[in-house]
């Protein structure tokens, strides 16, 4: 049994709990507006398209296409050694999701390349345990 990776704990605002509870179950759920259907991220109390405060935590496909990436060579977090490849991809439901791509090779990436979200157990640096999501090149 290998030890869990430690990662900086996610900021948890008033609307963020259900996102991380779903991630802990291996599901990617975002707020979909009950009035206009718009999917927003990061979580907020209000739909930016219609100002509705009514929403549901809808299951996302977790599939996206690459919009860009960068590779950290400088170490900013003690828990995250460089090089750290971070990918920005737009999921089918609309939002752009930022996550790292462990083991990925930046030289192999292209714009619009299909990627999928994967989940991994982690220990957060506040001592709690849960799951984190990463990007992975789609099989």
């Amino acid at each position: 049994m290998s030890e869990l990776k430690v990662r900086p704990a996610p900021p948890k605002g008033m609307f963020d709990g259900p996102l991380w509870e779903a991630v802990d179950k291996g599901e990617f759920r975002l707020q979909r507006c009950n009035d206009c259907g718009f999917v927003r991220y990061p979580p907020t109390g209000v739909c930016p398209k219609c100002l509705s405060e009514s929403y549901k935590w809808d299951l996302m496909s977790g599939r996206g296409r690459i919009m860009s990436w960068c590779v950290f060579y400088r170490q900013y977090f003690p828990e995250i050694p460089p090089p750290n490849l971070v990918v920005l991809a737009e999921i089918q439901e609309g939002p752009i999701i930022v996550a790292d791509m462990p083991g990925g090779d930046a030289a192999q990436l292209k714009l619009d390349m299909p990627v999928q979200l994967v989940f991994e157990p982690v220990k957060w640096n506040d001592g709690t345990e849960g799951k984190i999501f990463h990007w992975s090149v789609a099989k």
Partner: peptide, 29 residues
């Protein structure tokens, strides 16, 4: 500027990194 700290779990902070992804996209495009 929520994005200055929202992406901490993946190490994606700093305005330099936020510009680097734009420049990478420009290079590709």
């Amino acid at each position: 500027v929520l994005h200055y700290y929202w992406y901490r779990p993946w190490g994606f902070t700093s305005q330099g990194a936020f510009d680097s992804v734009v420049v990478q996209r420009y290079m590709e495009k």
